[in-house]
Nucleic acid binder design. Structure first.
Length: 276
DNA sequence: CTTGGGACCTGGCTGC
DNA sequence: TGCAGCCAGGTCCCAA
């Protein structure tokens, strides 16, 4: 599932082939993919515009256009962007052809992905919490974002309005790296534990970006290559397998209807569990 | 404030 | 072998 490292990789690898290119033709094969304009107006509005830059905010990709508008994309569960794919990808939802012949394809088997053409990117991203890899995301900022929140830490880490970019699998990896139980409430952490969570957020995400993301499911890089971050996973997607540290079988519980994997020995509930 | 559930969506897996 | 039914989880929305 595309989370921050996958979206960051997609942005980085799209940029050299897309920046400075002008849209010649836009074809939508799935009209409910786009908002707020109806599909025909979306295509017309994009045609003739040049991509000035691509940025990432949380799990969103922001294409800044020559008109000052933004083309915004969210890959949700199974979306992927492909550059000049060979043949016809089976789940093509949108196809963008640039003036120089470069082709960009939005592929999405489950059709949960979304695209917007808007004047103001803020209208889409304004509810997102801070970027966890930016220099202003300090330990103090994390402490403040988690304070007075009586929700499980796992739920807090994956709440896009508290911190942006972390999803289910990296949330599990971060908690294992910090050796903290996913059910500990966000407001129960000691200063030392918050420090550990902060370090883990940055190291897990940075390492995953260095590995070009995790190809556990449908995620592929724009050139079609797989990411390799999932080879580093210690708990995510590893229910029943031995913990790489202590060999205890990895457990899986449900939080907010989402599976959460952790090591019951390395991530013991020590103090102030409150939820157990 | 919090939790839980449903909705969206479909390929791939399970079990009969 | 075939097919119904479940599962995956990012995001939003609603009820309690």
């Amino acid at each position: 599932m595309p989370e921050l490292p996958e979206v960051e990789t997609t942005k980085n690898e799209l940029l050299p082939s897309v920046a400075g290119r002008c849209f010649r033709q836009v074809i939508l094969s799935d009209s409910h993919l786009v908002a707020p304009l109806p599909a025909p107006e979306f295509c017309r509005g994009l045609t003739g515009q040049t991509v000035e830059d691509i940025n990432r905010r949380g799990k969103y990709l922001l294409f800044r256009l020559s008109s000052g508008q933004y083309l915004i994309m969210h890959l949700r569960m199974t979306g992927a962007l492909l550059l000049n794919p060979r043949g016809t990808a089976p789940h093509t939802r949108a196809s963008f052809t640039f003036h120089d012949g470069t082709r960009l394809v939005f592929n999405d088997p489950r059709r949960l992905g979304k695209m917007w053409l808007v004047k103001d990117a803020e209208s889409i991203t304004d509810k997102l919490g801070p970027e966890p890899l930016e220099p202003d995301f300090t330990v103090e900022v994390l402490a403040q974002r988690l304070s007075r929140r009586r929700i499980p830490l796992k739920v807090a880490l994956t709440d896009q309005s508290i911190i942006s970019g972390i999803g289910n699998m990296y949330g599990d990896e971060i908690l294992f790296s910090a050796r903290i139980h996913p059910l500990r409430t966000a407001d129960s952490l000691s200063a030392e534990e918050i420090q550990k969570v902060h370090r883990s957020i940055q190291s897990i995400l940075r390492q995953a970006i260095a590995r070009k993301g995790a190809s556990t499911d449908t995620y592929v890089r724009p050139g079609g290559q797989l990411g390799t971050a999932h080879f580093d996973f210690k708990v995510a997607h590893r229910e029943g397998k031995p913990c790489p540290v202590c060999r205890t079988p990895i457990e899986r519980i449900f939080l907010r209807g989402r599976g959460t994997c952790f090591c019951p020995r390395c991530q013991e509930v020590r103090s102030a569990p409150r939820l157990l």
